[in-house]
Design a protein around this nucleic acid. Structure first.
Lengths: 150, 150
DNA sequence: TTACGTGCAAACCCTTTGCATTCCG
DNA sequence: CGGAATGCAAAGGGTTTGCACGTAA
């Protein structure tokens, strides 16, 4: 039933999420989210890169629409926006089997590794509690040099 | 010998650091660093804000020079560049009595609190070790809502 | 049919840069 | 004096927006 050949014509999470807010499922929105799902959750793409990837698969989506769509998908919780690069943001798929994680970035070549850490999560939680803040998310960015760049 | 009551005419850290590299101590560079020292290490200023603060104290320093100076002071280790705001970078004074610390930011009003955490520091260190990276710095950014904005 | 969404280009914000002039050492 | 630094304005990169047309529901 739910195999590779079968496809879920019955309202994808994206479609139902959109409809709930009176928004529409457009081919462009579908293509952008599909791209992230196809490349997996460990990839971090910039808006320009999303644009380029789609072009490669013969889908011309304007950059303006890509920016609008990325913002929307972040707000809807499908994507996560990273703050790690110097020039511009990057986005990654947010999935259950790939929860709270942090990034180790080589400041020389940009290579990025991910890791998880319960201590970091609890440190963020404690900090928020101490100051009376309501936690939204905490992200640890580790700037470093990768083996090749040392 | 010394004219006024106790002043350190003998080469400030800024001056000696600059001279070591064949660079010069200019009034502009002095004013920017002085500003950060005057407001203390818990303030996070954007380039525009530095510009405005200096104007208030009747010092016109061009924005271009402020950007150049901020980059220089970061490279020299006097300032630290934060990655937390959506629009543009912020800078803070780096001092010994105010070491490794992290930021709790209200995503609504921008209010920022600082905190320290040994667990976070060691989590970053471990992550770098595990992947064979050479650690440079690790910063935890906690996005949250402050009491007033909840 | 009718909002909502798209594409295009212009506008925007933050930051950097080229160049003539100023000025530190 | 000579090279470094400044100020100005223009250029630059990433992102947003106004508007007319296209299109999902």
């Amino acid at each position: 039933m739910n195999s590779k050949a079968g496809y879920s014509s019955l309202s994808s999470p994206l479609q139902s999420g959109l409809h709930k807010s009176g928004l529409r499922l457009t081919p462009q929105r579908k293509k952008v989210l599909d791209l992230f799902q196809r490349i997996g959750s460990s990839n971090h793409l910039s808006a320009e890169e999303v644009h380029a990837h789609l072009l490669q698969m013969k889908s011309r989506v304007s950059l303006a629409t890509i920016y609008r769509t990325l913002r929307l998908l972040v707000k809807m919780g499908f994507l996560h926006q990273l703050e790690l690069s110097e020039g511009g943001h990057r986005f990654e798929l947010l999935s259950k089997d790939h929860p709270d994680h942090h990034h180790l970035v080589c400041i020389n070549c940009g290579r990025t590794e991910e890791f998880e850490s319960e201590e970091v999560v609890s440190a963020g939680r404690k900090a928020a509690e101490n100051k009376g803040f309501k936690l939204i998310e905490s992200t640890l960015n580790v700037r470093a040099l990768c083996p090749q760049c040392i």
